[in-house]
Design a protein around this nucleic acid. Structure first.
Lengths: 335, 335
DNA sequence: TCTACGCTTTGAAACGATTCACGACGAACG
DNA sequence: CGTTCGTCGTGAATCGTTTCAAAGCGTAGA
């Protein structure tokens, strides 16, 4: 059924070795022979079998990427950055999304290991570092995305979420807000926990500021809407005067609840700030203030580190790249 | 370096065949032996080499999916549907995005063929059907997503974009609009062309309706903003009183240009309707009317067809599934 | 005691591309 | 004319898993 090098070789009256050379090192083969082999390939419709290739090579030409949620534009931007850098070296990205589920995360890791990927990029949900250690000890480079290893044992590309969280709350406080609510969860997600920590630090800087936590089960628009409805339905005196959402998706949901399904005004009654500065933040009902992260660059840099680690082998020195978040002020916090 | 079945076999004092059986048909092996082999696997840290597995099996356990743009939430939803259905059969989705670039589309197809994927889902940009024919003739099932084959020679899952386009314009006309602009492009994208065709049909139904086409180079928020700015900057008498965008991303961009960067009011000055009904449509500055498509279901169904085709072999009868679009009215068309 | 049967296990063959030591050939050189 | 060198091409060995015909072994029935 499938056409193999052997048949191509027969058709072109050369050996299989020559066919392989035409495919991989054409300059080593006489031009005339190259032409003959290419003609045979064309005629027979030969397509290289990547599995056989990989088997021989020992590893594949792809890189695994596990993200928390593909539906979040932030992560698709990261993926694009990764894809672009990978393409420069003729590599491919295998994209998996864990949905913040440790089992899914693990199953993607297993899958990637079986595929003998060139390396794994992961924004690990849980603190399953031992597992990552093991992968690495098997020779699979691992780069942490959007998260740093506690002991700097892994390379990582991250943005300081504690600083970002503090930025957001400091901005709210400076705009005159006092009763702040943090909407986000679950706290098992590192990003969420860090942003909250930053928020706490910033809140503590000024006396009289209260910081309440409204925990959500996830970070989607839907969950944001639910949290927003809960806040909207409180008696006015129990409502916060500002909300900081762990990401823009949540903020969009909160916005829907407050404005569209309720009759609160943003920012008059409640100020709102999100995180990630996705494309839609700017076009929201009330343009959303947010904390911007260089998503594309994160992905690009992560693959870059990964490839360097793969090249240098086990004596590679892990490297931590840290980007700084940036405050983007729009109407939702009362410009 | 890497641990192979051979070493596991040696460690457990069995043959390689038995190790393989433990992995694939444990019920055929004596329980005690299974335990011994599993212990050896655990101890040596054995990980199956998928390349070798595939080489033997002849094809991989993944399905290729080429989408036009991963940044469009519509397509990530399709991808999620596909992933969910694939997972039911222990398969994986390989995601590639063509960016509406025929070269990229082709290179992903090549890649998938080399990987010996189980099949390919594609929303083909160009009319490169011959290429798809060829892939299929090599035994790779192909299912068209969001597009139908002219001659019904391929299975497909689609939504009738002509009907959807007509729906949108009919709604605008019924709301009292007369001078309609269609924003979208390039027309080489089938979805864009079809939606425009539907728009033309609907416009022709009522005398006195004009339909102008504002062609864009792509379907992103950015391009929408550019088109919106061009329209905004016209003298009032040359402005349309309604805009139909080929997708929600464009509509969001137009919205930004009209309202945030300009001072036109939606829907008072101009009504606006998009397409896809992505999550953000509802939370836009002015909640966006749109034409909804069952994205997740499209992906799910496409994989389902694909797997059926793979099972039934070459005598499979191509099947066309067609979903109906649905009008969602929100403020942007003046509810 | 012998045959038949079922349950386990065995191990060589196969999948297809790549590699590499080696051979063939011709040209250049002394 | 013999030697050396360079260019091309060869084909067996290899990667790791799965498959499958066959064999080993114990038990039950004849």
């Amino acid at each position: 059924m499938a056409v193999s090098v052997r048949e191509v070789a027969a058709a072109a009256s050369v050996s299989v070795g020559t066919v392989s050379n035409v495919l991989n090192r054409p300059e080593k083969v006489a031009p005339e022979t190259v032409a003959r082999v290419l003609a045979a390939i064309e005629e027979l419709g030969f397509v290289r079998n990547d599995a056989a290739r990989q088997l021989r090579a020992g590893r594949s030409r792809s890189i695994g990427l596990v993200v928390l949620d593909v539906r979040n534009p932030f992560f698709t931007d990261v993926a694009r950055g990764a894809e672009d850098r990978a393409a420069e070296d003729g590599m491919t990205i295998l994209l998996g999304n864990s949905d913040d589920n440790p089992d899914r995360e693990r199953s993607y890791l297993d899958l990637f290991e079986e595929q003998r990927v060139h390396g794994v990029l992961i924004s690990p949900r849980s603190d399953d570092l031992p597992r990552l250690e093991r992968a690495r000890s098997r020779g699979v480079p691992v780069v942490l995305v959007d998260r740093e290893a506690p002991d700097r044992s892994f390379s990582s590309v991250a943005v300081d979420d504690v600083v970002g969280g503090a930025m957001a709350v400091r901005h709210l406080v400076e705009s005159g807000r006092r009763r702040i609510a943090f909407v986000g969860g679950p706290s098992s997600i590192r990003q969420v926990a860090d942003r909250l920590e930053g928020a706490r630090l910033a809140a503590a800087e000024t006396p009289g500021i209260t910081l309440e936590v409204v925990e959500t089960a996830g970070t989607t628009v839907l969950e944001g809407r639910a949290a927003g409805e809960a806040i909207r339905d409180r008696a006015p005196e129990y409502r916060p005067d500002a909300i900081f959402c762990a990401n823009d998706l949540l903020a969009v949901g909160v916005l829907q609840a407050l404005i569209m399904l309720g009759d609160l005004r943003v920012p008059r009654d409640i100020a709102l700030i999100g995180y990630d500065d996705i494309d839609f933040a700017q076009a929201a009902v009330v343009p959303l203030s947010s904390i911007r992260q260089p998503a594309w660059l994160i992905g690009y840099t992560a693959v870059d580190l990964l490839l360097r680690e793969a090249r240098d082998g086990p004596d590679f020195e892990p490297e931590q790249v840290q980007f700084q978040p940036e405050l983007v002020v729009r109407d939702s916090t009362g410009r």
